[in-house]
Amino acid sequence: MGIPNVLCRKNRILLGELVKTDFRLRYQDSVLGYFWAVLRPLLMFAILYVVFAKLLRFGDEIPHYPVYLLTGTVLWNFFTECTNQGIHSIVQRGDLIRKISFPKYIIVVSATATALINLAINLCVIIIFALFNGVTPSFSWLLIIPLILELYLFSLGISFLLGAINVKYRDITSIWDVLIQALFYAVPIIYPITLVLESGDFGQFASKIILLNPIAQVIQDARYNLITNTTVTTWEIIDGPLQFLPLILVVVTLAVAALFFRRRSRRFAEEV
């Protein structure tokens, strides 16, 4: 399996067919159907908004805080959905792997593709929300596309790793459940990064660490470009070549994960 045939015609067809099937089946037998894809992050946003914006008054100094919060939750939701689909993908498709030969990475890509479609719809919701909230549209909104690509590649890399490990060690799902909870608080979604930044010397240090996480970098950059350029970004508070660390992390994660996955995938049919 070389790089050139990674997206050859035959594999594209299979990928398309698997995505279509996943999509058809996901919301089957639910009354609201596909609407849930939008409703879930909106409901999560509503809870966070009531608790953190209204009760704890976290975002008083941030313009358009509701949109700011929604952008964070939607992108975070995308990351968790991607990795949660990815981690189970290989095991769930065990019956296929045992009986037919095809490139295994297609399974992981198709599992995460549904999350990508959901994200696209949620982005429309964000844009409607932003316009209602009085955010002025600008060309910088287009920068959201490379940012999403970056987040997707990162999620995909993690999905390859987790999906491959899960074939042999099912413990990884429990470990990932806990890790992702911890990670949620390590990313400035509910709290503004300025809150950490303003809490002394350690806060300065901590916020730099926080913003070296590719997820945090993407979320802050998305807010910066979509909503307000008062958003503190990785590029602003980290100087020198270190500010490229999030991008390097994404590339390294994806490369290591792809190699690991390729090596492990030879034995999936026996082990799954």
Binding site: I13, E17, R24, L25, Q28, L96, F102
Partner: peptide, 22 residues
């Protein structure tokens, strides 16, 4: 292989075909 009870006969034929590389 890959037959899914929730899909129609037609959809299953196409899915099965894609798995076989058609």
């Amino acid at each position: 292989v890959g037959f899914n009870p929730e899909l129609t006969g037609r959809e299953n034929v196409y899915l099965n075909g894609a798995l076989l590389g058609f």
